[in-house]
Amino acid sequence: MTEVASDEEDEQPKQIPRIDAETASRGMVVGRDDAGIKEAQLIGSGAKVSEIKRKSEERESDRAEKFGDNFETISIFALWFGFVTFLGLFGVWAYHLVTPESWHFLSNTALDKLQLVVTGGFVTGVVSSHMKKRLS
């Protein structure tokens, strides 16, 4: 196991040699990641270990929150897509209920399957569980 740095070490930051523009232009710098550059600047500025850890935890929290936001956006899109699809299926089913049989375009077997989907508890269960989760 490695030991955690004490506060005494925080008082004497380690110096990291700076890279001059000529060395950087020759391609001696590995990677061009903005987060890596920011971290190197933070370490090179003489920040305390506790400050570096705090900033790291802050960035990790931001990444997790961004992932959660993206997942929520996808979830909302899927919910709306399902709702519009359900309305379309319900419209077709209702059309077959109110129009004469000569106007129908689905077979009786297909209409029975459609009725199961429209009136089944599956759709209701999915929507209600999602709404309960969002509203609580």
Rank of each mutant, 00 (worst) to 15 (best):
K55W: 12
N70C: 01
F105E: 00
A35T: 15
S56C: 09
V98Y: 04
V49S: 09
V126Y: 03
F67Q: 10
S128H: 03
L114G: 02
A35M: 12
L79E: 03
K133D: 00
F122G: 10
F67R: 14
K14C: 01
F90H: 02
T2F: 11
M1G: 12
D34H: 08
G27E: 07
V118Q: 06
G91M: 11
V127H: 01
G68Q: 11
Q15P: 05
K53M: 08
V118P: 05
K38H: 09
A40H: 11
S50F: 05
W103I: 13
G44E: 08
F86Y: 14
V118M: 10
G120L: 07
G46T: 00
Q15G: 05
A47E: 12
T109K: 15
W103A: 14
R59K: 13
E22F: 10
E101A: 13
V118S: 11
P100H: 10
L87Q: 08
V30A: 15
E8P: 01
R32P: 01
F77Q: 05
D69M: 12
A64N: 08
L106H: 02
L114W: 04
L111R: 07
A78Y: 00
S75C: 09
V29D: 04
S75P: 02
F90S: 05
E51K: 03
V92D: 05
S129E: 06
F90L: 08
F90I: 00
F122D: 07
G120E: 07
V123G: 12
